[in-house]
Amino acid sequence: MSELKKGDEVTWQSHGSTASGAVEKKITADTHAAKREVRATPDDPQYLVTSEKSGGEAVHKPSALTKKPRSKK
């Protein structure tokens, strides 16, 4: 998968269904985000995403996210 960036629309599996939202930022160091401690490094980053439906924040590894294709207008 190509590098994700702020604003990219993505989907992920959440509680047995597919959730969607947008990337807020790439996390490359240990930090606190989405109400939990996040372990990340430049070689093993995670992404902070905001749910389109609930507005809640979550943190996911790149392998858990699927970038939505851009719609052609």
Rank of each mutant, 00 (worst) to 15 (best):
K26M: 13
S71N: 14
V49D: 10
G55F: 02
A64H: 12
D44R: 14
V10L: 05
L48E: 12
P42C: 09
R70M: 07
L48W: 06
A40K: 02
K26I: 06
R70I: 09
K5W: 00
K72A: 13
T66G: 11
Y47W: 04
T18Y: 05
S17V: 11
T11Q: 12
T31Q: 09
E24F: 00
T66F: 06
H15R: 15
G21N: 11
S71V: 10
E24A: 11
T31E: 13
R39M: 06
K68W: 09
S14M: 09
E37R: 12
V10E: 08
T50G: 02
V23N: 08
P42F: 08
A22F: 12
T41F: 02
G16S: 04
R39K: 13
E37T: 11
S71P: 04
G16I: 07
E57D: 09
R36I: 05
D8R: 00
E52G: 06
A19G: 08
D8L: 01
W12N: 05
E24M: 13
A40T: 08
K6P: 01
A22L: 10
G7I: 02
L4T: 00
K61L: 01
A19F: 06
E9W: 09
P69Q: 15
S20D: 15
A40L: 04
K5R: 07
K6D: 04
K68Y: 03
Y47A: 01
E57R: 13
V10T: 02
D30K: 12
T50V: 15
V23H: 07
T18M: 12
E37A: 15
H60E: 06
K68F: 05
K67M: 08
G56F: 11
I27L: 14
H15A: 14
T28I: 15
R39W: 03
I27K: 12
A64F: 09
G7W: 00
G56N: 14
G56P: 00
